[in-house]
Design a protein around this nucleic acid. Structure first.
Lengths: 223, 223
DNA sequence: CCCTACTTTGGAACGCTGTTCCAGTCATGT
DNA sequence: ACATGACTGGAACAGCGTTCCAAAGTAGGG
């Protein structure tokens, strides 16, 4: 009785799935995708690797849970007022910004289909596709197209974040890649040669939004 | 002189970067993404792990080379006649079919940006975006949007292939997922609930193409 | 109050990985 | 024929995900 009054759990800091997932998110944020290991995690939680397996089946499940935790928080707000175009932008930017803050989420989204939080995103997109007036027969394809675009950007953002060495700045990376594009043979790569300059100064978020708008514009042609 | 006449290389079957990459592709095709290890690879090449490192810097480079090899073969043909819309479909389907045949390529594309073969795809898309009449200021965004869509589908296809247990058929997987969607609360997931049926019978390739067409339709609105 | 049944812990151990190291082999230019 | 540099391949290292299991902790019944 006395012991029950002291704590709901069993110990001062009882292990729990939520605590493990939170620690995993923190570890991933600090140390990057490769920073999450059961040893590092158990060290941070001051326990052994074996204890974690009592609450989590394996690393894939842990990564999925961490991704869901971040994405669920990002999707918590659902204003949904305004036009369908605006609502689509809101949900897309919610995902984009979450990935921008936690690049490992992008990598995870690109490799794990049909995660529960992705379903949530798909649902939100789909509703707005309906609101846009896309005929029923084309709604599934249209919503899938937009979702795949978002997931594609997610994966590429994660890849860019990964390739960026800790010291280098975004401007350095972009400048180097832009210089590489500019140095390509204009005869073999005419297009890339012409857009090399735009690469240097472009804004990822604005470009992402431009892509969303482009796809939405495509949807409006089929309604 | 005589020995040079016998072989260009040094041994009956000299190790070379090309031979290593070819063996890696074969291993990935047979055993999947997780099947490629330096030990398995060296066993297949009848050598030791150390020898491989003389020709290849590390596993990332090997995977990149394997991906480039497959994609380069898929993009070898460049008819390019016809309309821009058609040319875009050809290159997009080329990537899609290559991934369909080698699912690990999809995973690789989703996680490694600015690989040389991806540049090739980007160039081809970009040229057709220009041919479509998209204004110069929007060409970079438009081509990036389409590329990101293609890469997004690539990643999801790879994820689906990965989650599919060796025994189960595509119909089983789709049926199970469709049933899951149908079982969701219609109040919380109205859209997903309505498209659950379409999921069961949809064709990945056709849906991919519908997405491409949707994005191209969007591009035509801005020219 | 203690004993028993059950949950939960955490450290050791297993098999695997990518990678490094290096003694030895081979083909060649002198 | 020999010396040199390219190339090989097996051993070894640190780290990984995962499993196992003896111990510790907690709760309920006699």
């Amino acid at each position: 009785m006395a012991s029950r009054a002291r704590h709901t759990g069993r110990r001062e800091e009882a292990l729990s799935r939520d605590r493990i997932v939170a620690a995993a998110v923190e570890l991933l944020d600090v140390a990057g995708e490769g920073g999450l290991s059961f040893r590092a995690l158990s060290a941070q939680l001051r326990t052994g690797p074996g204890a974690i397996y009592w609450h989590v089946a394996n690393k894939d499940e842990l990564l999925a849970a961490a991704t869901d935790a971040v994405l669920a928080a990002a999707l918590a707000a659902d204003p949904a007022g305004e036009t369908p175009e605006h609502a689509i932008r809101v949900v897309a930017l919610g995902v984009f910004d979450a990935i921008d803050e936690h690049p490992w989420v992008g990598a995870q989204l690109a490799r794990l289909a049909s995660q529960s939080s992705v379903l949530q995103v798909f649902e939100r997109i789909g509703r707005q596709v309906q609101a846009l007036g896309v005929p029923a027969a084309g709604q599934f394809d249209a919503a899938s197209a937009l979702l795949n675009y978002v997931l594609g950007v997610a994966g590429q953002n994660a890849a860019n974040a990964r390739s960026q060495a800790p010291g280098t700045s975004r401007a350095d990376v972009l400048g180097a890649e832009s210089a590489l594009w500019a140095s390509l043979d204009p005869a073999a790569y005419p297009f890339i040669h012409t857009v090399a300059g735009q690469l240097r100064d472009h804004d990822d978020r604005a470009q992402f939004l431009a892509g969303v708008d482009l796809i939405v514009a495509g949807m409006r042609t089929v309604r």
